[in-house]
């Protein structure tokens, strides 16, 4: 491994300046659980790591029940699941926060880093998508907002332009009779990357499904938001058949590949099963949250 530089800017503008100047030779560093491994193993060739943890906006967690949650891009998982109010308001996010790595990794790894790493198998992106989360981006031209489902453009690639970086992720306020659920399928019970994953968010109205959002992990070049499931489920009764249909839509929407983690056939099958189970889990939580 060659020597690389390290910078630790203390403001948004300082960070944007370094990132803009060094372009693709620079990479932001949050928890480092992906980037350090990538650099060390020669998967990514860069000259400078720009540590963003000293920028206040990136390390803040702001939550109230009226305005929702703003999650600094560098906030590690443990701070999220240890925040009782956040955990209670967004159990679908906690599902992801507690299954990334083990305790040591959760002490460093952030949702923002997971999002910017832009793996199709990322565990946090699908839960963010179904919670209608929006990315706040800062760069040489100032701020802009992008819905999470539009943030990843290809495996390992995002819509961030030269000099831009992720500042925070905003989630709408929690609603009554609504909840999310994320399920990941791995062959083991820990320490693994999703063969497939499904996140679901459901808002109930009068005992029926008012609206629903489903997103799938590891079955397309980017985390896959399946809008069609929401369209099909809106206004439907909660029945096994409805959930089964949602699963079939997920199966049809999935565009997985064969690799060492799974086969096309198995992943499509998992999409159907996980979508059904995640919806069921979200509905049960929403009913408890009535």
């Amino acid at each position: 491994m060659k020597d690389i530089e390290y910078a630790a800017p203390r403001s948004l503008d300082e960070a944007a300046a370094i990132l803009n100047e060094r372009g693709s030779r620079a990479r932001p560093l949050a928890g480092g659980t992906d980037i350090i491994v990538q650099v060390r193993e020669g998967c990514r060739d860069i000259d400078i790591l720009v540590d963003v943890k000293k920028i206040p906006e990136l390390s803040a967690v702001q939550f109230n029940r009226d305005e929702g949650l703003t999650l600094g891009a560098a906030v590690p998982c443990y701070q999220i699941y240890n925040n009782a109010e956040v955990a209670q308001a967004y159990p679908g996010l906690i599902d992801a926060a507690i299954l990334i790595g083990a305790a040591q990794i959760q002490g460093r790894a952030s949702f923002g880093g997971n999002l910017c790493n832009a793996s199709p198998a990322a565990d946090t992106i699908c839960p963010l998508i179904v919670h209608s989360a929006v990315c706040s981006i800062y760069g040489p031209d100032g701020s802009r907002a992008v819905p999470v489902e539009e943030f990843c453009s290809a495996p390992g690639q995002t819509v961030l332009k030269q000099g831009e970086f992720l500042v925070s992720i905003a989630l709408p306020p929690p609603k009554p009779s609504a909840a999310g659920r994320y399920l990941r399928f791995i062959p083991r019970n820990e320490m693994d990357i999703a063969v497939a994953g499904a996140a679901a968010y459901v808002e109930l109205e009068n005992g029926m499904i008012g609206s629903a959002r489903v997103a799938l992990a590891a079955v397309a070049p980017t985390p896959l938001f399946v809008a069609e499931i929401g369209e099909r489920l809106a206004g439907q009764d909660i029945t096994d058949e409805t959930l089964r249909e949602a699963g079939e839509i997920a199966r049809a929407a999935a565009r997985p590949i064969d690799d060492m983690r799974g086969t096309v056939e198995h992943r499509k099958e998992l999409c159907a099963v996980l979508t059904r189970r995640a919806l069921k889990g979200a509905i049960e939580r929403a009913q408890e949250n009535a």
């Binding site: 320490m191 990357i193 060492m260």
Partner: peptide
């Protein structure tokens, strides 16, 4: 070898 790491060469963990 496509899975030359302990992430993808899956030995049982204590939970398995």
């Amino acid at each position: 070898l496509l899975n030359a790491s302990l992430l993808d060469y899956r030995m049982p963990t204590t939970l398995d």
